[in-house]
């Protein structure tokens, strides 16, 4: 069970905020860029032959003696893409935390009739679940998220190149540790180019900031198996910590430059505190 019933109850009160209008294909709860047949009036336009006579504004005709057609806002649904980095570097607490946040936000999206799709990314699309809508789909979505297993190298840029295009645009939520040898640019550009509003969640384990190691060591890269002989002392750890902070800031700058939302979270942060306080503060969710 990814999320407790109590948490789900609290999540039901949240909405997933977006700065863009979606362009879904079904009449959803959110306004679409296309005018359609919903109840909300948008504008008038002059009648041209062939227009549906049901939308003629007879009151206006009575006053102006001119034929005008009423236009309505078409209420649209969104595609929320939950993208989980499941490379080997995410193994352990980072992926667990990412799964929980992803499931929470997916549940919020499903509660507002958004279509939610889930994908696990390494250097390819490791797993993929097609879009689903409605609260009833939440169990399937949760199962899909839970089934995302770690393994493989990190290269989401390459993976997204083969990721199926979704109809319409929406929100892409990327859960990752940004430990990409090739850098995050390619992946982020790909998502932004698809017209998505992209938000990256940088998952960081506390042990990554200052590893609890010392002495003469051989460090083994979990993904590539590459080895590095190194003598670690307090001074080395100080320098490493400085390097990690500088790199994380660089990731944030890269995201902001590409118009991607960025939120860094330590896996030691309680889940509810992160969702109900941190994410509300940065405007990812709201009531």
């Amino acid at each position: 069970m990814l999320l407790s019933p109590e948490l789900l109850k609290k999540l039901a009160a949240l909405t997933l905020r977006s700065n863009k209008r979606g362009s879904g294909v079904r009449v959803g709860e959110r306004r679409s860029q296309r005018r359609g047949q919903s109840q909300e009036f948008a504008d008038h336009r002059p009648y041209v032959p062939g227009d549906d006579l049901r939308f003629l504004d007879w009151h206006l005709y009575g006053r102006l003696d001119t034929l005008w057609v009423k236009l309505f806002e078409e209420e649209d649904d969104r595609v929320v893409q939950v993208l989980l980095d499941c490379s080997t570097s995410m193994e352990g607490e980072k992926l667990d935390y990412a799964r929980q946040v992803a499931a929470s936000l997916a549940f919020v999206a499903l509660g507002h009739n958004d279509r939610v799709t889930v994908a696990g990314l390494t250097d390819a699309v490791a797993s993929y679940a097609p879009p689903r809508r409605g609260r009833s789909a939440s169990n399937i979505v949760f199962d899909t998220i839970e089934a995302v297993n770690p393994g493989g190298k990190s290269d989401p840029g390459k993976a997204l190149a083969s990721f199926p295009r979704q109809r319409g645009t929406g929100i892409a939520l990327l859960f990752t540790d940004f430990l990409y040898p090739e850098g995050p640019d390619a992946a982020l550009r790909n998502l932004v180019a698809r017209g998505n509003e992209v938000h990256a969640f940088h998952i960081v384990a506390p042990a990554e900031l200052r590893p609890a190691v010392d002495g003469d060591l051989v460090l083994v890269d979990a993904e590539s198996g590459e080895e590095l002989a190194i003598s670690v002392d307090e001074a080395t750890l100080d320098r490493y910590e400085t390097t990690v902070h500088a790199w994380a800031e660089e990731m944030e700058i890269t995201c902001r430059r590409l118009g991607v939302g960025y939120t860094r979270v330590l896996t030691s942060t309680p889940l509810e505190e992160f969702i109900f306080k941190d994410l509300r503060r940065v405007g990812v969710v709201g009531r």
Partner: peptide, 12 residues
């Protein structure tokens, strides 16, 4: 030398 597995050597 002790072998220690780390998520990535990128930052090291």
């Amino acid at each position: 030398r002790r072998r220690v597995r780390v998520p990535s050597l990128m930052l090291w």
